[in-house]
């Protein structure tokens, strides 16, 4: 069930004094089971793009097809699209509203008109996937939870829709290191175990480098780069030119090359750099 974006353009506040074109002729396809890291600085159009993937925004021109269905088409059932493509907004905990954790997570499935048993199953399953204990938390008020727990409840609320594609807009924003690691590992598990297609918007190059199988770089409403992390991160200069960082491992590799060391091209993970340095120090991989 690929998502196909064809020649998509989007204009905000069309006709007004603040008219801005957020997307210019974006075309891309997201295949089943991919893990896509979407990067770009603020205002590059990534959030706008992401809101097209489940029909929250309709293209000014161009098309977005989910499973062959045009999301902007009046005849398309938007809810069907939204149960296929789940979207977790930035700071999703700010959108919680129900009296209890259970009810909040059940909001989506209830909107889908499922049976009580099915809703209950999904709530339990979603909470398990975000590593929260149903027994301990289901009757608690969402507003009594810690920040990290609230965020996970919010993500569970989207998971309970059982989407095949999960889009996350900066899922780790504002969390402490432990919270960040928890969220990242649950995303990793969703992808690995349930095979969910993941589109993760992130400002952290290191997070993207450690998780994504494909990296899409947005700049000024256009797709600037699209490829494997190895391909994208090997273009350090181009990334810096559009004001983005590179993973620290890439930075290190670039700097070592400047100093005349024969660092192989395309290294982007700390493990790879470590392996190279081990070789350098005469400690082969076999020793490690």
């Amino acid at each position: 069930m690929p998502i196909v974006v064809e020649d998509l353009s989007y204009v905000y506040m069309s006709g007004g004094p603040y008219e801005t074109q957020a997307l210019h002729n974006v075309s891309l396809t997201i295949e089943d089971g991919e893990f896509v890291g979407l990067i770009g600085h603020t205002g590059s159009g990534k959030s706008t793009l992401v809101q097209h993937l489940n029909g929250l925004l309709s293209p000014t021109s161009g098309r977005v097809l989910v499973d062959g269905l045009d999301v902007a088409d009046k005849a398309t059932d938007r809810r069907a699209i939204r149960r296929k493509v789940g979207l977790v907004f930035q700071y999703p905990e700010n959108q919680l509203f129900e009296e209890t954790v259970e009810k909040d997570v059940a909001f989506g499935p209830r909107n889908l008109g499922l049976s009580d048993e099915e809703i209950d199953r999904r709530v339990r399953d979603a909470l398990r996937r975000v590593a929260l204990s149903y027994d301990e938390l289901h009757a608690r008020s969402v507003f009594e939870l810690s920040g990290g727990q609230m965020r996970r409840v919010a993500i569970a609320g989207v998971l309970a829709m059982e989407p095949r594609v999960l889009v996350l807009d900066e899922p780790c924003a504002g969390l402490d290191p432990r919270g960040r690691e928890e969220i990242l590992s649950l995303i990793r598990a969703l992808h690995a175990e349930a095979g969910t297609t993941i589109v993760m918007v992130s400002h952290s190059m290191d997070d993207v480098a450690s998780l994504a199988e494909r990296v899409i770089v947005m700049n000024q409403g256009r797709v600037a780069m699209d490829g494997s992390p190895r391909e994208v991160f090997s273009q350090g200069e181009a990334l810096r030119a559009i004001g983005l960082d590179v993973p620290q491992a890439v930075e290190l590799a670039d700097r070592l090359r400047e100093r005349g060391l024969a660092v192989p091209q395309g290294l982007y993970r700390p493990e790879e750099i470590a392996a190279f340095v081990r070789g350098l120090a005469g400690k082969g991989d076999a020793d490690a």
């Binding site: 929250l56 939204r82 149960r83 959108q95």
Partner: peptide
């Protein structure tokens, strides 16, 4: 702005 965002988030969860 916030209203708009919350509304969209709930719509993404099938709210009508």
């Amino acid at each position: 702005e916030e209203t708009d965002k919350i509304q969209k988030a709930q719509m993404a969860r099938g709210a009508d």
